[in-house]
Design a protein around this nucleic acid. Structure first.
Lengths: 149, 149
DNA sequence: CAAATACTTTACGTTTACGTAAACTTTATC
DNA sequence: GATAAAGTTTACGTAAACGTAAAGTATTTG
């Protein structure tokens, strides 16, 4: 009783919050390869891992076929011949470059969100100030319209 | 002559390596709002910035409608009323959470790529070793088959 | 001024990633 | 043993994000 070896389709669907339709679709596309008992699908823990990877890939903007390519490549890599190993190393380095790009994009996005948030807070502070001014108008001059530029 | 104020569709297409079709599609979806001279589109530097954001969004796995929502929200935010400002701040914090998730995903992916690469290199080293053994078999015992586990 | 070049609209086609419904079989439950 | 619950296949439908002609306009260039 280590970790549970097999899973039903609805168990996986519930755990990862996807529809059974999606899971069947992933099998159809050969990203998952459940065995059968009768006609019922039985998923292994390897399938479970792959499902997790599929979903992470999606969040990272990977298409199913990209993910499948990686799965296939990894399977072939396990065959152990030198050509496949080198191919895998090459692919890994390309993927790493992709991740670098994504980290860059995220960093950029964060910076822009920082400045956006700062501007929001400024604008809010201005509004609060005006509220006070309205309640307790200390000095005169026209204060109603046109203040920027 | 500061920064060039306007761009043709093909200039932008070339600069960002997208098709003109895509750019027109983005306009159709109201992500870009070029003006016209006659019937020809004229893109402002604001459009240019937005195109850049669209593409970055795509690399980060954002749909066009998600990006459009952000654009619209930002435009409304600029109207300056308190409700919109608060809504924007809320949205920003949700997007930040999303970015955190993505960073997590990337970190996971990197770790898995590290171990994958390590295994590849091990396997390669093993192969090299076997090549040497074949050329210069120093000791006896059966050395042909089954060495792991 | 004719031909090439750049732009346009209109519109049907395509791929991806499922949603949704219909019609069955198998297994569990009352 | 009826019926609900969970599974299945088959198949048509759909939204997103463009691709790909087709056919026309506008401008530039030899």
């Amino acid at each position: 009783m280590v970790k549970k070896e097999t899973y039903s389709i609805s168990e996986l669907a519930k755990e990862f919050d996807v529809t059974t339709r999606s899971i069947r679709f992933y099998e159809d596309q050969e990203l998952l390869k459940p065995t059968r008992r009768g006609q019922t699908r039985i998923f292994s823990s390897k399938d479970r891992v792959r499902l997790k990877l599929i979903l992470r890939g999606k969040r990272m903007g990977f298409s199913l076929s990209e993910t499948k390519e990686l799965f296939d490549l990894w399977d072939e890599t396990l065959s152990g011949n030198e050509k496949q190993l080198l191919l895998m190393l090459d692919t890994l380095s390309r993927k790493r470059a992709q991740l670098e790009q994504q980290k860059n994009d995220i960093a950029m996005a964060e910076m822009e969100m920082d400045t956006a948030e700062a501007r929001c807070r400024e604008a809010l502070a201005d509004l609060e100030q005006k509220k006070k001014d309205q309640k307790m108008p200390a000095n005169d001059e026209e204060s109603t319209t046109a203040e920027q530029k």
